[in-house]
Amino acid sequence: MELLFALTAGVLYASGLYLMLRRRLAQLIIGLGLLTNGTNILIFTSGGLTRTNAPVLAADALETTEPFADPVPQALILTAIVIGFGVLAFSLVLAHQVHRSSGTDDVGDRQ
């Protein structure tokens, strides 16, 4: 299972970086989105994949039953997703402005 997640993260990183190296703004932004998602999966995987118990106390228990999933990476990812989403929305608007002001979505085109 870890291997599958690691490979997914790797593919997301690779395709994200590849797209970020392209000349078109739209591809650059998609690349950025893929990269953020790759990062999220990486955090999720590196926190350890445990399917047995949720990190929640049972009604009358004092301790969670081992083994339980580590909640911290999930909290981290949740934060990262929210931030990434906001930033992605912002860069889309910015790309739209670039397109409107210079009439092209080529990154290197600075006439």
Binding site: T36, L42, I43, T45, S46, V72, P73, L76
Partner: peptide
């Protein structure tokens, strides 16, 4: 963020 993920892991 990548560094933080690996570090936490």
């Amino acid at each position: 963020l990548t560094a933080l993920g690996l570090l936490y892991g």
